[in-house]
Nucleic acid binder design. Structure first.
Length: 256
DNA sequence: TCAACGTTTCCTGATT
DNA sequence: AAATCAGGAAACGTTG
């Protein structure tokens, strides 16, 4: 049903980007088109295992996080609530809507998404062609005028995804209601104060993210306490309650 | 190859 | 009593 919108994608500044003979299904079912990624367990596929049109909100978040990290986008300029959408909704967003949601970074994100849609995850393969295309887009759209630092296309995507920081994981969980499952709860949204409601579940989730089944809340909380030093978190003298510090970004409602 | 970074692991002791 | 907090110390994996 989505085949038309994909194969007839109009955002293809460089025709060589998309092989017109390659079908949508082929693009996303062929292992060789995204060799850099591993599929997760069937019950919980990673965004790279799923077609953008079928991404859940969680997948959208994962993709966004990946883009921010891989391309060093300034997350503070991105309105995350605009991206609290399903893959289908994301795919229906126009370039203008991306710009509204994330400024110049939005154009970049739009470009990346359209390329994934058009050619699958081969977009991330380490080819000169892709690198050049990214540079072209970057030059004409955002890198010149924004703080985005130019980077070659991702060749270590998986590693990069795994390197996601704990506080960002916590932040994103807090901002993603359907993934949260009542694990975290805002205590004071404006001040960035939140409570860990299900400490064990939080540790389990973090452990899953880091592929570490020995993670416990005891150990996770030690890592959180290190954030007091760096101003990512501030101490709140209540059990299981934390507060984002001045060096944490991307959690504030008015900046979303 | 090395060193910095962000944890992870373990621990002792205090607090709730 | 069990869970959580506070940090020191050291190990560890990734990254530049």
């Amino acid at each position: 049903m989505m085949l038309d919108s994909v194969t007839h994608s109009t955002f293809l500044p460089n025709a060589s980007f998309c092989d017109p003979l390659m079908s949508w299904t082929d693009l996303f079912s062929s292992e060789e088109y995204y060799p850099a990624f591993e599929h997760q367990t069937a019950g919980d596929p990673y965004w790279t295992s799923v077609h953008p049109e079928y991404w859940t909100k969680r997948h959208v978040w994962e993709w966004l996080q990946f883009c921010c990290e891989q391309y060093r986008l300034d997350a503070s300029g991105i309105s995350f609530c605009h991206f609290n959408v399903s893959g289908l909704q994301l795919c229906s967003m126009t370039q203008e809507e991306f710009r509204e949601a994330a400024g110049v970074c939005g154009e970049y994100l739009y470009f990346i998404l359209q390329n994934i849609r058009a050619q699958g995850y081969s977009f991330f393969n380490d080819t000169e062609e892709t690198k050049a295309a990214i540079r072209d887009c970057a030059d004409s759209n955002c890198l010149k005028t924004s703080g985005i630092k130019g980077q070659d296309c991702p060749s270590h995507s998986r590693a990069s995804l795994q390197s996601s920081h704990l506080w960002e994981f916590v932040r994103d969980l807090l901002l993603s209601p359907e993934e949260n499952c009542g694990i975290l709860e805002w205590e004071d949204r404006e001040q960035g104060i939140f409570r860990v409601v299900k400490s064990e579940a939080l540790a389990k989730m973090w452990g899953q993210r880091k592929k570490n089944d020995r993670m416990t809340y005891e150990k996770l909380s030690r890592a959180l306490r290190y954030y007091y030093k760096t101003g990512i978190l501030e101490r709140v003298d209540r059990r299981l309650v934390y507060k984002f510090g001045k060096n944490a970004h991307g959690w504030q409602e008015d900046k979303l």
